[in-house]
Computed example of a mutant assay.
Amino acid sequence: MKNVLTILTVLLSFNILSAQDQIQTQNGSFTIHLIGHGTLYLEYKGTIIHIDPWSKLTDYSQLPDADYIFITHQHGDHLDNKAISKIIKEDTKIFAPKVCDAVLSDFKNVSYLKNGDSFKTTFGSIDAVPAYNIQHMRDDQTPFHPKGQGNGYVFTIDGSTVYIAGDTENIPEMRDLKGVYIAFLPMNLPYTMTPEMVANASDMLQPKILYPYHFGNTDTNVLLDLLKDSDIDIRIRDMQ
């Protein structure tokens, strides 16, 4: 009994019992595991795709090893070598923007992607897309996320398109993303978007399912009210 209680305590303490959503596709389904903040992983036919693993949120030694790891940008809540080291295996492939190269230098099988890069994998296609600030700036008037440094990612898995925006605002390039089925949009001031910006991004993208994520203390009810007349399935999860 002591061992069972100890394991349960660890699971609860590290949020390993994260929310899971099953998404139906043309020929089956995939699972989204929502860990928290900007961190999640996808599971499709035995393939594990981790996005922005962060060891502050969970015990990565208890999670499945990664076949693929995608990093959106270099900030510590998105690029965490400790978390990566717990889920990496001999053939794990890591993808990140070039700004992450110094931090990822100890790992092999790392590919650096720039905005506009596109390729196919064993589970589908990947597009690296822009992620940056237009309005929100640091005290020295430089953007929190400069244009061209970070990536968002568009995964097409068995005909279903999943857009993981990374740290960005409602940038005009979102209008170019067609057929988005699921969108993960950040909503955390001062670094990313206000609820009004997320609502505008949703108008541009027209996803079927919207997950506001990386939302900190932002009141998600504001977004729900802004989009109350839309047909978007807005899913609020524990993704502060």
Rank of each mutant, 00 (worst) to 15 (best):
I7T: 05
L11M: 15
L12Y: 15
F14Q: 15
L17A: 08
Q20Y: 11
D21T: 13
Q22K: 14
T25G: 03
T25V: 09
Q26G: 04
N27P: 07
S29E: 05
H33K: 11
H33S: 06
L34K: 13
T39K: 00
L40Q: 05
L42C: 04
E43A: 08
T47L: 06
I48T: 11
W54E: 11
K56F: 09
Q62A: 15
L63D: 00
P64G: 08
D65I: 09
D67K: 01
H75K: 08
D77T: 08
H78R: 01
D80V: 07
K82G: 08
S85D: 10
S85M: 01
T92E: 09
I94W: 02
A102K: 11
D106Q: 05
F107N: 03
V110H: 02
N115P: 11
F119T: 07
V129T: 14
P130F: 05
Y132L: 14
I134Q: 15
Q135T: 13
H136T: 10
D139L: 12
D140Y: 12
T142Y: 10
T142V: 06
K147M: 15
Y153Q: 05
Y153E: 01
Y153D: 05
V154K: 07
T156H: 10
G159I: 07
Y163A: 03
I164S: 01
G166Q: 08
D167Y: 10
N170L: 04
P172M: 09
P172G: 10
V180Q: 01
Y181D: 12
L185K: 00
N188V: 02
P190R: 15
Y191P: 00
T194M: 13
P195C: 05
P195M: 13
V198I: 06
A201I: 00
D203V: 12
L210K: 01
P212F: 01
H214T: 01
G216V: 07
N217S: 14
N221P: 13
V222D: 06
L224Y: 02
K228M: 10
D229G: 05
D233W: 04
D233F: 06
R235F: 10
R237V: 09
